[in-house]
Amino acid sequence: MTAFLSRRRSALTPRLCDLGATFAPFGEDSSLVESFSAKTREARQSPSAPPLLLCDLSPLARIGVKGQGTESLLRASALVAPKATNESVVQKDGSLCVRLAEGEVLLLSALASKGVRDFVPLHKNLESASSASNKRRQVFPVAYQDSLCWLALAGDQASDLLATLCAVDLRDGIFAPGALAQTSLARLSALVLRDPARRKGVPLFHLLADSASALYLWDCLLDAMSVPELDGSVCGRQDLLRFLATPPSRKRQRPL
């Protein structure tokens, strides 16, 4: 199945099509690039620099919950929320719960998710909260599935790449796994999250920004990656999972 047949399309579809990606069906009515063809993949990776990968995860599930009843709703949905703002916690199924503000959280599905049955108890509880009989509902959904695009950036030099776009110090040892920075990325308001599940091994960053600016952000990241010291490349979801699963090579370069 190709991109223009699924009803839901990532905002990055034009760029991925230009790169010759093939889209696989994902979830109910979406599609996802799982991997690039072997030829395009090899051509892009430079043997000298440690790998730096950028992957579009926009089709994966995410949802925001806002309101005074957020805590109780999360508990009722068997989800654990972080205590402090700008932190995140891994759930049992591998999904992430990120606290954006006192009464607001963002939930990101697990990377390996199949796209169906994500956050089922949460959706059920939100539905029942919004039914007409419950006029005093205290909790509301935020449409992050559509308003935010989701990019993953993995590699030892991820923080060096982000240092060309972002004025927050995201380096190892300063920006802990699980930490969130709500800041400006290439002059765009964005969420920069360091994956909490990866304390050892190659660092993984989740970048979430306004969908309308997804193409602009993608172009900025690719331009920044094209510097010879970084030499990053684009990959599909399965490529990313495979890369994250391989044992870490500790060869680090400091291009400063």
Binding site: R9, S213, Y216
Partner: peptide
């Protein structure tokens, strides 16, 4: 060098 001017596009832009 490397200056940023954010751009917003509708999904129908293509």
């Amino acid at each position: 060098g490397r200056s940023f001017q954010p751009l917003r596009l509708s999904p129908m832009h293509r």
